[in-house]
Each structure stands twice: as C-alpha cells, then as structure tokens.
C-alpha cells in the first residue's frame, strides 16, 4: 500500500506540472477560437431568399465571368495559361465548376456583389485606394440577377465521388494560392506572382494539420482576420461541409498514417498489457520465496 501512496504522490506532482505546461500554457498563449459562423451573417447586401432563374444566370455568367474564370463543368475552358492569368490579375482566377457546391449561398451572393467586403480585405483594398481588387464588384446587378448567377453556378456543379471530393474541394478553394508539396500539388499561381499579389507567401499547407491543428483551422479558414488580424489571406466563404472536406484533405496528406498509428497502437498496448500481467505473476512467484 505504501507503494501506491508513492505512486499517487508522483502522479499528482507530474499531473500538476503537466497541467501547467500544456493545457494551462496553451490557454494563456493562444487566443480563444470562436465557433465558426457558416451563415456569414455579417453579409447583408443581397436578399438570398429570392429564387434564382438558372437560364438567366447562365446568360449573365457567360457575359460577365468567363472572360476571367474557367468553368470546365459547363464547357468553358480557361482563356489563357496560368502564368499569363497570374500576370494579368495577380492571382489565377479559380475555376468556378465547384463554386455552387462549396461556397455558402449567402457568402457567394455577397461576394459577387462586393468581393472585398465578403473576403474581409477592406484593410488591403480601401474604397478609393491605389490598389484595386482584380475582380470587379457586381453591385450594379439587382439582387434577383445575383441570385440567378448563384442558381446557375449551383446547377453546373458536378457531383464528385466521395473518395475524390476532399482533394477536389481543396484544389478549387485553396489551390490558387497554397501548394501541398506532400501531395505533389503546386499552387496554380506561380510563387513569385502570388507573393507580389498577396504581400506574403501563402505557406505550403502539407504539415499545417499538425502545426495548427484541426480546431484552429476550423476557426481560421472560416474567418482568418479573427485569428491573424491584418492578414492578407482572404475569407474564402466555404460552407461547413466543404470546409470539413478541406481539413480532411489536409489530414489525409499531412497525417497519412493516422489510421495505421491508431490501430497498431491498440495492438501494441494490448501486447504490453499481457506482458505486464505475466511479469506481475512471475514477480509474485519469485518474491513469495524470499518474503
């Protein structure tokens, strides 16, 4: 029993120290991550309750958007190679095939109305400032027209097979800026161009699931400014499902052995437990002779 007392004292001292240097220190050094807001309720420029007209939306998109954006799923290829697009706009405008599926409807409508405020980049692109955001604001469109565009984008979004969807969403949502070298993926915008455009190099995200952890990513992707005030990374406006796909992809790439680790872990612990029990029985037998 004395030995249990000693063990309890050691466990208590180690426990206190652990609490201090892990959970407590973490709490002091890292700001609280607010729950993600997937309704983007700060955006109110467009009445999203209006039902969109897909046919009309198609006409509007073909007249306004495909000069810059590819929409492969609707048969619109990119107008120019990535390097040229990057040179013209600073960043390669993303293919919009999956936009109707990935972006939250309220975000998407408000983004078309005014990209800068939707992305929360007013500190970089102030009204009347020297630098203009490369995509024009379609605030001249009526709310009905904007919802027509949204409706069209939703209608052309292809269904993606379960096994590919995580990667597809990542490429479409983050791929113009962030490489993922551990998956042999290079950002569509060339390195120098994106740095000049953003003022900061978007990091390769291969290990960010480990360095930032899921909890932080959930808050950060949903609203970068909250956790990294003044950053040039835009709010991208993914809905909850798409954001989970992106994070799942970061985990597939950054922690590809997780499933193996967890199953091997259980077996090793089971084996060790058997060893410990046998060792205990053997010790009892041996020590019974000397006590």
């Amino acid at each position: 029993m004395k030995e249990f007392k000693i063990l309890a004292i050691i466990a208590a001292l180690v426990g206190i120290t652990y609490y201090g240097i892990e959970p407590y220190a973490h709490h002091v050094m890292h700001p609280e991550v607010k729950a993600a807001d997937f309704t983007f309720k700060d955006l109110k420029n467009v009445d999203t309750s209006l039902a969109g007209n897909t046919e009309n939306g198609k006409a509007l998109v073909e007249a306004n958007c495909i000069a810059c954006h590819a929409i492969e799923s609707a048969g619109h290829p990119a107008m120019m190679p990535n390097a040229d697009a990057a040179a013209s706009y600073g960043v390669v405008p993303p293919d919009l095939s999956h936009s109707g599926r990935m972006y939250d409807k309220n975000y998407l409508a408000n983004f078309i109305f005014d990209p800068v405020s939707a992305m929360k980049l007013s500190h970089k692109y102030p009204v009347g400032g020297a630098k203009a955001f490369p995509m024009p604001a379609y605030n001249w469109m009526t709310p009905q027209e904007i919802m027509d565009v949204v409706s069209y984008l939703q209608s052309v979004a292809p269904k993606v097979a379960e096994k590919d969807v995580n990667k597809v969403t990542y490429d479409a949502a983050c791929g113009r800026c962030h490489s993922m070298s551990y998956a042999k993926f290079e950002a569509t915008t060339p390195k120098d161009a994106i740095k000049a455009y953003m003022g900061a190099t978007p990091p390769d995200l291969s290990q960010y699931i480990k360095s930032r952890k899921e909890h932080y990513l959930h808050g950060f992707i949903n609203d970068p400014q909250l956790l990294l005030a003044g950053t040039s990374m835009p709010r991208v406006g993914l809905n909850e499902k798409a954001q989970e796909e992106v994070i799942a992809y970061m985990e597939e790439v950054g922690d590809s052995k997780k499933a193996e680790r967890e199953s091997v872990g259980l077996w090793v612990m089971l084996y060790t437990l058997v060893f410990a029990i046998l060792a205990y029985l053997w010790k009892r037998k041996i020590w019974s002779e000397v006590h």
Partner: peptide, 28 residues
C-alpha cells in the same frame, strides 16, 4: 532473477503508459 523480476513488472506497466503516449498523446 529476484530484483529483475520486480523491475520487469514495473517496466510492463511503465511501457503501457509510454506506448499510450507514443500512439495517442505525443504533442507534449
């Protein structure tokens, strides 16, 4: 075998703790 038999027993339970950390709780 006497001293080591006790050590193996302690080692067994220590390794259980150690492998738990190795597989499931390694951030620290």
């Amino acid at each position: 075998p006497v001293f080591l038999s006790k050590d193996f027993f302690v080692l067994g339970f220590f390794l259980l703790f150690f492998f738990y950390l190795v597989f499931f709780h390694y951030d620290f």
